[in-house]
Design a binder for these strands. Structure first.
Lengths: 356, 356
DNA sequence: CTGAGAATTGTGAGCGCTAACATGGCGCTG
DNA sequence: CAGCGCCATGTTAGCGCTCACAATTCTCAG
């Protein structure tokens, strides 16, 4: 009696309606979970949908509703632990909320590349964009771009009027520095990240603030580019300094390195120079990459919850898309200090009940 | 005279047509790069498009052409270097070819999670799926799933009838093992990855083959789970063995660890046990993660070109989508041996012109 | 100068879906 | 039991685009 269309083409809503003996609109109501459908009809339609393997055509739906339910993500360097984890968090959160995400991975966050990425995403009708671009310049370029949809930054700083979410880098750096000072070090040296990274700046600022609060003089700053190699080079400089002043005149007994990868390089340089960690110089990192626990020695570092970061960014973005965004345009999440062997307490014998 | 619609709504093709004084179809031809359009008309339309900031609605296009130009990617553990790099390669290649990609990141590649991921992507009308799921079980589940579109696996092995691309793990392992044997080691021990990973198996097979070819007896196998911790534990076992037989009766002077992260753990265990690398035991890894160069000591390993891998997978997938797929259903890419300090030549003084 | 054939442009009909409105049946109040 | 209003369902009209075809113009040989 009723003929079931098969094979050649995917069934449409009309096919389901015909087989179930209702109108296509009723099918639409069942799928959409509309309340005013009798239980009987709903069951019948559901069964036919099952039977035919019907799946709603998202393009048609997007066309009719003028909503694509698609979000774009722009990220750089997704092979690094932080961005990769954040990206995964973003994607998972978006999927849970019923959105499709499409990520564009950039090699470098130039104005040009960013423009192209936004154009690409806009061409696909994304309703919003999450940008994981932790450079001042990139965020500025993004703000100037005037994208055709809401844009939320991750680790993009608070300066500009783009909404965003960040981890509290400043606080993390402060925690590490205070931890080292409390452990008995007279001061804490710092190997910073690249100057144009917002995260780098915030970490440096936190370190600086902790030293100031403790009334400790600030040693000269070294700078790397996040890579193990740059950390290694910084480590060589530091090691040279220690070895040149046997009496430890510089008070160089503790180093806060702005990320774990550079810390790895620093550790190697120290080891090669015959310096022991933490006995001669304590070292702390930032990020808590999975390898950090197995560094020689296991590294004290700051753990960041990248997954939450991604999740929060989607939450904020959807608020903007749905127009329910309230005053809050910037969220900040707290990090966690992970203490390991690389900063084991300094000379406990010499300072019985030291510090506070 | 001519009114330009502004503000409230995005311009449509009809708007452009009206302003340019042509039919909507002509606008479509200009955008589509159709040849039979006069230069004059083309220029006029192009200008209006520019002026109005018109952008083709991809949903309407998808509806009319029945092509979404969207691809799905299913990946697990994208925070690891390999999968993350592959994912980036896939996305970049797809974008170059004019496709939108959407990635689904799974925590675990269970049958259930895979099914759900495929359903999710199918619901969005993807035309094909790249699956980065290097487990035998996962690939089997995927093959049984009967997805509504072509599926290409990455590192999925050759066993099943799913097309795929892989790096030649077997060859890489063989290269490392031969490198160690050539360096004068009487045999090479192996810390393998999880048994259910295809990459793990292939690496073990390559190691085994190299030993067999060299007529060397195969030492017992140790197994980890890719994590630094598991490598550490394996390393402790190995170290115990070395220390228990001072005369190095077991010939345990070289270890091929199935990935760099575990190698890091092994190195730490050796160091803690007072063993020197490479003087006492040489260690080699696999993957060439960015940190490998800065391990204590810098690690000999096998570099894999993940970006090419991703690119190739897209090429293969598009061949299947466009129906031009020829006999070739499985591609294999060659890896590269990177020699560093962790396998420095063994006792060159004792064996002047040894090995070959 | 004319007609065939090519080049260029226009017209109409959907693609599969949802939104808005229209319809018919039921229970309830007065 | 008339009549109002609510519930369940059907009908109609697009969303913005491409495809197939029709119509128009142009080109050039004969």
């Amino acid at each position: 009696m009723i003929q079931i269309p098969d094979g050649s083409k995917a069934p449409t809503m009309a096919d389901v309606a015909r087989v179930a003996g209702v109108s296509h609109q009723t099918v639409s109501r069942v799928i959409g979970g509309h309340p005013n459908v009798s239980a009987k009809t709903r069951a019948a339609v559901t069964e036919v949908i099952e039977q035919l393997g019907y799946r709603r055509n998202s393009a048609a739906r997007a066309l009719a509703t003028r909503r694509t339910h698609t979000l774009g993500v722009i990220a750089v360097n997704t092979t690094l632990h932080g961005p990769a984890s954040t990206l995964a968090g973003v994607q998972e959160a978006a999927r849970e909320r019923g959105y499709l995400t499409s990520a564009v991975t950039l090699r470098a966050a130039t104005q040009e590349a960013l423009t192209e990425a936004v154009q690409h995403l806009a061409g696909w009708g994304v309703e919003g964009i999450v940008a994981i671009t932790p450079w001042r310049d990139a965020v500025r370029a993004l703000a100037a771009l005037d994208a055709p949809c809401p844009v939320v930054t991750v680790e993009g700083g608070h300066d500009l009027d783009l909404p965003g979410v960040s981890l509290d880098q400043d606080l993390g750096a402060r925690m590490v520095t205070e931890h080292l000072l409390t452990a008995g070090h007279s001061t804490v040296w710092h190997v910073a990240g690249p100057a144009d990274w917002l995260e780098s700046e915030a970490r440096t600022a936190g370190w600086r603030a902790a030293l100031r609060d403790a009334g400790v003089e600030e040693p000269p700053l070294l700078r790397g580019d996040w890579s193990p190699l740059s950390g290694y080079q910084a480590g060589q400089q530091l090691a040279g300094r220690v070895l040149a002043s046997p009496g430890q005149g510089d008070g160089l007994t503790a180093v806060f390195v702005a990320n774990d990868q550079m810390a790895l390089g620093v550790l190697r340089a120290f080891r090669e120079a015959g310096l022991h960690t933490p006995a001669d110089v304590a070292v702390a990192g930032f990020d808590d990459i999975p390898e950090a626990e197995f560094f020689p020695p296991p590294l004290t570092t700051v753990r960041q919850d990248f997954a939450s970061l991604g999740r929060s960014s989607i939450g904020l973005l959807l608020e903007h898309i749905e127009g329910t965004a309230e005053g809050t345009t910037h969220l900040t999440l707290a990090p966690e200090l992970i203490v390991r062997a690389s900063t084991a307490r300094r000379r406990p014998a010499e300072r019985p009940a030291a510090a506070g």
